[in-house]
């Protein structure tokens, strides 16, 4: 990930220089803002890469030239095996958007439905049970 943060830090510096040049040659406001914030975008990712490289405390298996597939084996995170909750979340978000065209009453109902479905989504695997949950 060393290459990762250097790459994005370089991009960030590049955009910053381009933004200054563009300003000096009399560029318009949209371009200056967009290029400056592109620099911030690259800086954000560079900072995150740098931060996680520092935290990982070593070379990741995919960056190791002599690495094997088996080296990166292990727990990656928790993945839901099956869930219906994304469907009500998507439907109520859709209804909320549609409500802007049809009428505010639908948006208000849909925001309520959205909150309920997000709560369901977030808490799905927090049910108390005798079995180990994860």
């Amino acid at each position: 990930m060393k290459a990762g943060w250097r790459l994005f830090a370089g991009l960030s510096i590049f955009y910053a220089i381009v933004a200054v040049i563009y300003w000096l040659v009399g560029g318009e406001a949209v371009g200056i803002t967009a290029v400056t914030l592109s620099s911030a975008l690259a800086a954000l990712i560079a900072f995150y890469f740098w931060f996680s490289t520092k935290r990982s405390g070593g070379i990741l298996p995919e960056d190791n030239m002599a690495g094997e597939i088996a080296d990166s084996a292990g727990e990656l995170g928790f993945y839901s095996p099956h869930s219906w909750w994304p469907l009500p979340v998507a439907l109520s978000a859709c209804a909320a958007g549609l409500g802007l065209l049809i009428g505010w009453w639908l948006t208000l109902i849909a925001i309520g439905a959205l909150l309920i479905s997000i709560i369901g989504f977030v808490l799905e695997y927090e049910k108390p049970s005798a079995l180990p949950t994860h």
Binding site: S52, R55, S56, I59, N64, A66, G67, A70
Partner: peptide, 22 residues
């Protein structure tokens, strides 16, 4: 699995949820 000895000690992989958030 002969390369195990060559790989560095325990590496903490960046959390996937955090990467997605970024």
């Amino acid at each position: 699995m002969t390369t195990v000895a060559a790989t560095p000690a325990k590496v903490t992989r960046p959390n996937i949820v955090a990467v997605g958030t970024i």
